[in-house]
């Protein structure tokens, strides 16, 4: 087990980014402002449950479930 990821967060739950488990994904997430120590809040899931609407400090982004699994959060 690698620990909890953004994908494991419930709607409304807040987590703090610890690290990434996929370098390629990490590069792209960084440019969108998801960094280690960033606060992320899961606002809602997409209508078909396949994507996550995230609130970051100051802006919002949407990622896939698989991309959420690449973002590990502090326990």
């Amino acid at each position: 087990m690698e620990g909890k990821s953004v994908f494991d967060l419930e709607v409304g739950e807040i987590g703090y980014v610890k690290t990434f488990n996929n370098l390629d994904c990490a590069c792209k997430l960084l440019t969108l402002g998801i960094l280690p120590k960033s606060k992320v809040k899961v606002v809602r899931k997409s209508p078909f449950g396949d994507a996550i609407y995230l609130q970051l400090d100051g802006h919002k982004i949407a990622i896939r479930n698989s991309e959420g699994k690449a973002i590990l959060i502090e326990d």
């Binding site: 792209k28 919002k60 982004i61």
Partner: peptide, 8 residues
């Protein structure tokens, strides 16, 4: 293949 999109 990625989604990762900003919601302005």
């Amino acid at each position: 293949s990625y989604l990762m999109i900003e919601l302005p």
